[in-house]
Design a protein around this nucleic acid. Structure first.
Lengths: 190, 190
DNA sequence: ACTGATGTTAGTACCAACTACTAAAAGAGG
DNA sequence: CCTCTTTTAGTAGTTGGTACTAACATCAGT
């Protein structure tokens, strides 16, 4: 079987280039046993940018992913906050948070949302989780919007007690009782 | 104050290039108010590759990071496992896991290690956390190697009770009691 | 002030991987 | 056979460089 027809070649080209953006026109020409010019024409017709632009695009995209990853250090977005009283955050369950099998969110992400909310609600330089009792009432699934509410029950100068309830569309999915240790000393050096 | 000395400029150059790998020699020359040749000499001395190589490197590196990201779905590396009995995992505290201020690990990472260990130790298609009581005894700091041990206390066909102890160099930093819900039905569709 | 060493700039030839364009050759279909 | 599409060839120009040579500039020490 000799060369492909134009149509086939272009389909395959798209596939090749999207699976491996690092292919030069020269390599591609060899792969399809056509001239470089043909590959160029194909790219032109298919609006496939040149090698360097493809690489640049990948690099840009991925440097963005690092940013959104380090934003993930606080799980969930805080949408309401009154220091030392209460706080509200929203966490949207995405691909990375679920078991592949059943698309149920891993428990520790729900915990992380609650835990970082507790850290945020305390208006002190140092706030660490001391203990917690938690319950997972219902599973959260891919795409669910989990709203978590933390209420500070008491603060005695060292320990704060906070209750957290997380809901999806008004239905309780998680609750917990957190004891947080806090002080005014923000030790800067390790 | 006019131009920088060679030394200073090269330090700044390294910083600039590593924070933004997309800078051409021309842009850099403008920024430091020197000729392009000087920038080239600097790059040569500092072994900084040219723009295209830098971008290629970022693109390559980052396509790899997608892999290591999906590895992150289990926090910690499992180093010993006897299904339905016990499991051991190692979690090394890195930059992304700590508060910047004091380099203490965020609580939910220690929880995540324990939680995913509990999921792993149960030899059933579906295993979800039902509830947990946890205690943070001592803070874990940047660079610490946290060894977590999960022991299955009992399994009654639906609920497993697991105790977890996490230690850094033999010293207890975290303990918890987890109730896990499990079944043989691995529902594939949401 | 003169001498060297170090640092900076200029300029040339060359490269990869292209774009944009023109033009010729090859095939395929009626 | 003629026509229309497809493919190939070839030229000029671009970006962002390398590698190299050579001319200046700056300052340090004597």
């Amino acid at each position: 079987m000799a060369k492909y027809k134009k149509r086939e070649r272009q389909e395959l080209l798209l596939e090749k280039v999207s699976t491996d953006p690092f292919l030069t026109d020269e390599r591609l020409a060899e792969m399809f046993d056509v001239s470089i010019q043909t590959i160029r024409l194909d790219r032109l017709e298919l609006n496939i940018p040149e090698l360097r632009e493809r690489i640049k695009h990948v690099a840009r995209e991925e440097t963005d992913k690092i940013r959104s990853l380090s934003l993930q250090e606080v799980i969930g977005e805080i949408i309401d906050l009154e220091l030392n009283h209460h706080a509200l955050s929203l966490f949207i369950v995405e691909e990375g948070h679920v078991f592949r099998k059943n698309r149920i969110a891993r428990g520790h992400y729900l915990f992380a949302q609650a835990n970082s909310l507790c850290v945020a609600v305390i208006d002190e330089p140092l706030a660490l989780t001391k203990s917690a009792q938690i319950e997972f009432i219902r599973p959260a699934k891919l795409g669910d919007k989990v709203v978590s509410k933390a209420v500070v029950e008491k603060m005695d100068g060292r320990i704060a007690v906070i209750t957290v309830e997380s809901k999806i569309e008004q239905r309780l999915v998680f609750k917990g009782r957190f004891e947080m240790y806090y002080t005014g000393e923000g030790e800067e050096n390790g």
